[in-house]
Design a protein around this nucleic acid. Structure first.
Lengths: 343, 343
DNA sequence: CCGCGATTGTGAATCGTTTCATGTATTCTG
DNA sequence: CAGAATACATGAAACGATTCACAATCGCGG
């Protein structure tokens, strides 16, 4: 029942333990005849390496873990894809853990990953702040790369997208379209991205349209449902006090807002212009194609994995890097007054 | 640098190896005084269990793996959520592997998971058929539960949704709306679901509207892009030969079709009615809210994980079960002629 | 104060692999 | 053909946790 082990393979092939191990790990030092005999034995007995034993001996694994806030969020799935490509082409394996934005679950995952002595860790931590928990990884020699969080931390690499710049892009665009009462929908504001995008929008308005006003609606989460709720509340505002444009902290919110506004007969972009963030696939397929700020998602994942593998190789003499990508505005019908009326 | 091991903890606490192990695994057999001393030592030294060693000794792990066709597909993310809940509440950990519908990547993942002696495997295999590769897992005592594939296999459990019934639901609905030339968009047809949903639609038409016609457009994948391409091709069909309704094998395709048709000025549901499959979140938020066949996705994942854990406990005397869930039709504007014109 | 059971602690053996110092046969060099 | 270099194979030691048979200690009734 249990898998054969290396000793049985050795006996079956009539060679020693070490020879079988050599066939597996350094086939070139074994003579072709012997090698074939061992391979046949492996085949015959259905031998499968025991990775626990291998890791125990080696002291580390070839598994890289990525802990994301939400596996259902297309942003993270793209990051995962990017990281996957790099890790797999380096002969490793990427396992995906889902914290679900729950600090306790994140903690449990980290505990298990630490016990497993993973080769490295890509993570978007639930809470911002100092991430003391991650110091233990670094102390044990497990490289950690922060994804879209905590740039600038001295003891780990990070990759991020400039969210302040993204907020600026969106707000500049809305100002260009003549809007002067803009509502920012996003939350919780304790999430850095949510705060940064807002800060960018604020800065843009201050620079380009001091008379304009940026209101804030804080949501409990970054979901379609939360967006729908926000729209409900927007609809209760008297028409002449309503914002003329809404900038959402992500596309899920924006899609929810779009849906909610539409249900209340409020036209987008006719009555309210809408800009999202992330440019997920569905943004273009929405009821009104959604303007959005696009982030280089797969690139983020690729770079994170590359930094991790580099650190893994360089060891002590590695110097941490903080890569920041620039976002890009994609204008579609939802914020384009002319298009909204002609198309 | 490297983590302290159990021996150092023992020395530091002034007890033996076995005692430390007892504190970790059977705290009740150790006196409170000693236990506390050991716990303090663990804390002081920052000791972290080495899971490789533990597994090597124990012979198996507490990790359950799920291998899905596409982590970005909301269908699978919901299945993952369901499975996660069950595995975690049983004290295990769920790792997610992405085969990307690529048989080679699936194979590599299975190799690594087998080497890791995972506790069990939930998988939607890339190819249908006999899944010989999975027999090795079963032979080594690793339970396998098929998700949405190969129901009825005698040596493993499975969970699935009745796709033939789903196809029937969709086709019945379209027939009710008076459609007689219906196009099925989906592919590759080698995927059982794709074929079953079509078979259900065919059967429904045969039963309820023998004069009606079911055409088939086979796509290369189940993606938004493939749907968009299908719409391009539909648009080239002369108007009087065009199908009056399209039934897509999943919602991603349907969203792509919707987008493509809209771009060509073909109205949904006015010119062509549209029904998708899966009822992903975005279906309701689409340009025209999408009718769809809903599957109990999280339920699928939960049940799969439960079957797996059961088998894991029962061992030899486990008898395999095949659970089949029934889908449900959700009618929205995309296939509702009246609504499409009034709303 | 002996003896017995209960309680608590001990440490050698074990899991399966990799590594490496060592051994032996074979080939090459001059 | 001696001596050296090369090629190949060997098996004991080590990785770190768990288990289990056994030992030590204590309390208590007689």
């Amino acid at each position: 029942m249990a898998s054969a082990n290396i000793k049985e393979v050795a006996r079956y092939a009539g060679v020693s333990l070490g020879t079988v191990s050599n066939v597996l790990n350094r086939p070139e030092v074994v003579s072709p005849t012997t090698r074939q005999r061992v391979l046949d034995a492996i085949d015959k007995l259905g031998y499968v390496r025991n990775d626990s034993a291998r890791q125990l001996r080696a002291g580390r694994s070839r598994t890289v873990a990525i802990v994301v806030l939400d596996v259902s969020n297309p942003f993270f799935t793209d990051v995962i894809h990017g990281a996957e490509a790099v890790v797999e082409s380096a002969g490793g394996m990427l396992v995906v853990c889902n914290s679900g934005e729950d600090a306790r679950r994140e903690h449990r995952h980290l505990d298990m990953l630490e016990e497993q002595r993973v080769q490295g860790l890509l993570i978007t931590p639930v809470s911002d702040g100092r991430h003391k928990r991650l110091d233990a990884f670094v102390a044990h020699g497990i490289p950690v790369v922060l994804v879209d969080r905590g740039s600038g931390h001295p003891s780990r690499c990070s990759v991020a997208v400039d969210d302040v710049a993204g907020g600026r892009l969106a707000a500049d665009h809305l100002v260009d379209q003549g809007h002067e009462r803009i509502l920012y929908v996003g939350g919780p504001l304790s999430i850095r991205q949510v705060a940064d995008r807002r800060a960018g929008a604020t800065a843009a308005l201050a620079d380009r349209a001091p008379q304009a006003e940026l209101l804030t609606y804080e949501t409990a989460s970054l979901s379609v449902a939360a967006g729908r709720q926000a729209a409900e509340d927007i609809a209760t505002i008297p028409v002449d006090e309503r914002p003329t444009a809404v900038f959402c902290a992500n596309d899920l919110l924006a899609l929810g807002v779009l849906q909610g506004l539409t249900m209340h007969g409020i036209r987008v972009p006719g009555d309210i212009a809408l800009v999202g963030y992330d440019d997920i696939d569905f943004a273009a397929a929405a009821a009104v194609p959604l303007s959005s700020v696009r982030q280089p998602r797969a690139q983020l994942g690729r770079t994170a994995a590359q930094l991790l593998l580099e650190e893994s190789l360089e060891g002590e003499k590695h110097s941490h890097r903080h890569v920041v990508f620039q976002p890009e505005l994609v204008v579609r019908a939802s914020s384009d007054y002319s298009r909204g009326h002609s198309g």
